[in-house]
Computed example of a mutant assay.
Amino acid sequence: MRLLHTSDWHLGRSFHGVGMLDAQADFIDALVDTVREERVDAVLIAGDVYDRALPAVDTVRLLDSALERITGAGAVVVLSSGNHDSAARLGFGSALFERAGVHLRTRYEDIARPVILPAEGRPVAIYGIPYLEPRLAAGELGVEVPNHFSVTAAAVQRIREDILARERAGEPVASVVTAHTFASGGISSDSERDLAVGGLGAVPLDLFEEFSYTALGHLHGRQQLSPTVRYSGSPIPYSFSEARQAKGGWLLEFDGGGLASVEAVTWPARRRLAVLRGKLEDLLADPDLAEAEEAYCQVTLTDSQRPAKAMELLRTRFPDTLVLAFDPEGGARGPAQTYSQRLAKATDDLDICCGFLEHVRSRSAADEEKDLFIEILNKVREAEAAQ
């Protein structure tokens, strides 16, 4: 029995203004190939299949195609909702989809209703915990204190009771749980968004220890919290903080005794990410940066003054520079001042104009710019004198 653990597809998301739908379609191609080549029996999607509650039409079509292709390749799908998904909309038609091998877990009442996959020895029971917003889930789950720990613990308890009932009935199972949450021990990156207003609500790792495997979603870096509790991470990078991460999922193998092995599956991204730092002249000349010419780039310039037309010049070599920052080497510019502080120190009208220009673009006025200011100020004075 083979399962493929994925999460955080975020279909429909953009990357610094660049649409990602084509890159997401590439990832789905790679996933379907993996399902066929590895003879995967079930694909797990641990939340955030969409990037927003109301996805665009093209995004919905992409998911529709993905589900049809995965099931057509011989695997069932178990999809639980995340904090970016609309549980009600994603769960539409769940009873009908189940007949086609797509099992949606978006409702509290389905938490303890597993997808049973027959296997030699013990069958595999897959339980899906949808994202639990504490204020909404507490009442449904009979919890008095609405926080992430309490609602997750209540959901896990329901699953434990179902597993125990099966054991008492002489039908033991290997248990797999999907959940979209922040488990303590995970390492976050910039493109995740907080699960709780005012702070991230973490749940302790030991909540999941007794299950054969827990497939987590929410953090975008693939990581192992314990041998049986892991994040698959997002299938493609969604922030420059993920530039060095290998993207993919986890391939699980079950035998008659339970979980036998877990191995990483990596899918190459359509475009790599490059994080560059240095002086503009050096970046444009450095031969070691040739690979970055085909990458999406985040550039931090360390010139003592912000170079003129910096983005335009960078894009002559790195056409897909998406983010440009300025951090003078050694703090050459000194402490930041507000414009009011600059204005208080100005000695004349020319100083005011040049100070404003420097404030808004982090570069002193060039000689020709000063000459232009002088010409304009003289014309203003002449007009005032004429009045």
Rank of each mutant, 00 (worst) to 15 (best):
P287V: 04
L284M: 13
P319I: 00
E294G: 08
L284E: 10
A260N: 04
A215S: 08
R277G: 15
Y213F: 07
G249D: 05
T266M: 04
G233M: 09
Y296M: 08
L283V: 02
D255T: 02
F326R: 08
G221M: 07
S239M: 07
T266I: 12
A264Y: 02
Y231A: 00
D320I: 00
G331T: 06
R271K: 14
W267M: 08
F254N: 00
G258Y: 03
E291T: 10
L313N: 12
G248T: 03
I236C: 03
S261N: 13
D288Q: 13
I236N: 01
Y213G: 00
L301I: 09
L225W: 09
A285L: 13
A260C: 07
Q245D: 14
A269P: 12
T321R: 05
Q298K: 13
L284K: 08
T302A: 12
A246Q: 15
G221W: 05
D255E: 11
P235M: 02
E263P: 09
P319E: 06
D303T: 08
G256V: 01
E291W: 14
E210D: 14
Q305Y: 11
F240C: 02
Q223R: 08
A295K: 10
R222M: 12
R270D: 11
L216Q: 02
A295Q: 14
H218T: 03
S232Y: 10
V275H: 10
H218K: 12
R270A: 15
R317S: 03
F326V: 00
Q223K: 05
S239R: 06
A243D: 13
T266P: 05
E263W: 08
S212R: 07
V299E: 05
L324T: 03
Q223F: 09
E294K: 12
G217K: 07
G217M: 07
L251E: 01
C297S: 05
L314F: 12
A290C: 03
A274E: 06
S232Q: 07
Q245K: 04
T266E: 15
L251W: 01
K279L: 03
F254W: 02
D327K: 09
S304K: 14
A264E: 14
V299K: 08
A215I: 02
T214Q: 04
G331M: 10
R271W: 13
S239E: 12
S232A: 15
E293C: 13
L324A: 09
L324R: 03
L289M: 08
D327G: 06
E281D: 15
E210Q: 11
E210H: 08
L314Y: 13
L289F: 04
S212Y: 06
V265D: 01
E291L: 13
A243C: 09
E281H: 08
L284R: 07
L252G: 01
A264S: 14
V265G: 04
R270M: 10
A264K: 13
Y213A: 00
G249W: 09
E293G: 03
T300A: 15
P227T: 04
R244S: 15
